[in-house]
């Protein structure tokens, strides 16, 4: 301890190098998000006969640190849609506020027609595209699940660049590598959506989350799952991955220092 109280409790410059204060800058150019900070991992979703199921775990990571373990990344909009967020959590909360105010505005409006999931997806993709065009992106990849104007199940994605696409099953982030192949195997294109029951869809999502929990280092075994049908939206926010089997782990060989 020295006679500079301002340095007490801080990493010593002579040991750790000077503190990088660049992020404390209050003058100079306005800094836009150039990389996400607190992030959520995959969101996965699948259409079934009469609705859509969507799931995401409850983790918000800070780099490799599992920082917040009770973060709800599925956002219910009215009784029409569920939005699943991956990517930056603060940007998620900002978008959430946009949706909140829009929901209130819509509910007070006189026109009486409700926004559906398709409208919501169009809106969100335009918000994302506008922000990327200003070089100030909202660092998220989102899935929107619900119904379109014809009351048909709707599932579509939008990312930080404003790119949009839609498919019978979608996943963001690591899920695009790990979950989509599982979903494609369970629900091949030849199999019509009418043959897929709600139970099929939900159990498929649970299986995918388990695989993600096994293999995605930024995932959690606590998750949220929402099912959107014409009857309404059921959200379960404190699910736990059941029947884990780590038996396979001891058969894994050859990583790191382990040679045989």
């Amino acid at each position: 301890m020295n006679h500079f109280p301002g340095t007490w409790g801080r990493p010593r410059d002579d040991v750790y190098g000077p503190y990088d204060a660049s992020y404390l800058r209050s003058t100079g150019p306005k800094a836009h998000t150039q990389s996400p900070a607190v992030t959520g991992t995959s969101v996965i979703a699948v259409k079934f006969n009469g609705g859509v199921a969507i799931a995401a775990d409850n983790l918000a990571s800070y780099g490799s640190l599992a920082r917040f373990t009770d973060v709800k990344r599925l956002r219910v909009f009215g009784n029409a849609a569920v939005v699943g967020f991956s990517g930056d959590v603060s940007d998620m909360q900002y978008i959430d506020r946009l949706l909140e105010s829009m929901d209130i505005r819509e509910n007070y409006s006189a026109h009486g027609n409700q926004l559906n999931a398709k409208n919501l997806h169009t809106y969100l993709s335009k918000v994302l595209y506008k922000r990327r065009s200003e070089f100030n992106p909202l660092w998220n990849h989102i899935l929107v699940a619900g119904f379109d104007g014809d009351k048909k199940p709707f599932l579509s994605s939008a990312d930080l660049l404003g790119t949009t696409f839609s498919a019978p099953h979608l996943a963001t982030g690591f899920g695009a590598h790990l979950a989509v192949p599982i979903l494609r195997r369970l629900f091949p294109e030849e199999r019509p959506i009418d043959e897929i029951t709600k139970e099929d869809a939900v159990s498929a999502l649970r299986d995918c989350l388990k695989v993600l929990w096994y293999r995605d280092a930024r995932s959690l075994d606590k998750y949220s799952l929402a099912v959107i049908t014409h009857e309404g939206i059921e959200v379960q926010e404190d699910q736990q991955i059941e029947a884990q089997s780590w038996a396979f782990a001891e058969t894994i060989k050859g990583y790191g220092a382990q040679v045989v």
Binding site: T7, R10, R12, A21, S22, T27
Partner: peptide, 8 residues
């Protein structure tokens, strides 16, 4: 090492 007095 006042972090906040560091010249930018």
């Amino acid at each position: 090492g006042y972090s906040f007095s560091q010249p930018t």
